[in-house]
Design a protein around this nucleic acid. Structure first.
Length: 259
DNA sequence: ATGACGGAGCGTCTCCGA
């Protein structure tokens, strides 16, 4: 089985590239983040013609997540257990489903913005709710993984220059402790191989030539339990999907499993 | 060339992203 995750930075303008990518890479399951569309506005028909069912969760202009599957899509759950709000609004940042016997979640962790911003506290609260949800979900007894844009660089090596991030989110100890809490639940970081250079970055800012200069970050992650991680035969960041005209600023991660 | 911000909304700018 081949599973994948991709922050597409809006499904509308990205749809042609997503369809092309599905056709060439042929994942069985694709977790999407940052749809920037409401649930009803998702292009279900075009994706169905490509052979995939979709469970989408979007609330409009920001965030939004989905799971596409050609191996079944059951028991869909939208949102986290005890999910916090921001400015009294609930975001659409997490969706879970059972696909081909696996319990999979697609998540888009809040950015945090700045260390003094209330959005940073929201990010940490959201991560606590994710931990609680993972704990609950594991009681289903199915092989389990959570995939998505975590907006956290797990180590200093996961950004191109840690000196640039001295007063920034994404690299702080509280954020990294939230990842450690997921590992304490038995999940492990499925570390992909890069197609080029020596580190598997998954995000490069559009600005200032960051992609051609490989000023990237590894913030999209696959956290899998032992049954899933033990079945991994290959994993890579498809940086080719970051090239060319009209790309997302994130590249997909592809994980092959022998279950 | 991989190649030097882009998406969305009521919008001619601001917010957001990381």
């Amino acid at each position: 089985m081949r599973i994948a995750t991709w922050n597409v930075n809006s499904i509308g303008p990205r749809l042609p590239r997503v369809l092309e990518w599905l056709g060439s890479v042929q994942p069985d399951v694709l977790c999407l983040q940052e749809l920037k569309s409401g649930t009803d506005a998702f292009p279900f028909d075009a994706v169905r013609e490509a052979g995939y069912e979709t469970a989408a969760y979007g609330i409009g202009r920001w965030n939004g997540v989905a799971i596409l599957s050609r191996v079944g899509l059951e028991d869909v759950t939208r949102g986290l257990t005890g999910e916090p709000t921001f400015e009294d609004k609930t975001d659409a940042r997490a969706i879970g489903a059972t696909c081909g016997g696996l319990r999979l979640w697609s998540v888009y962790v809040p950015n945090g913005r700045d260390l003094e911003n209330p959005h940073y506290d929201y990010k940490l609260a959201w991560l606590s709710a994710l931990e609680a949800t993972v704990r609950e979900e594991q009681s289903r007894g199915l092989p389990f993984a959570v995939l998505g844009d975590f907006n956290i660089a797990p180590t200093d090596a996961d950004v191109w220059d840690i000196g640039v991030f001295a007063e920034s989110t994404h690299v702080t100890e509280p954020e990294r402790k939230a990842l450690a809490a997921l590992r304490d639940l038995g999940l492990s970081d499925v570390f992909p191989r890069p197609l080029k250079y020596d580190h598997p970055f998954t995000y490069w800012d559009y600005r200032a030539g960051n992609f051609p200069n490989n000023k990237g970050m590894r913030i999209d992650l696959v956290y899998a339990d032992s049954r899933v991680s033990g079945a991994v035969t290959d994993s890579y960041v498809d940086r080719d999907a970051r090239k060319g005209k009209g790309p997302s600023d994130h590249a997909p991660i592809v994980v092959d499993l022998s279950l």
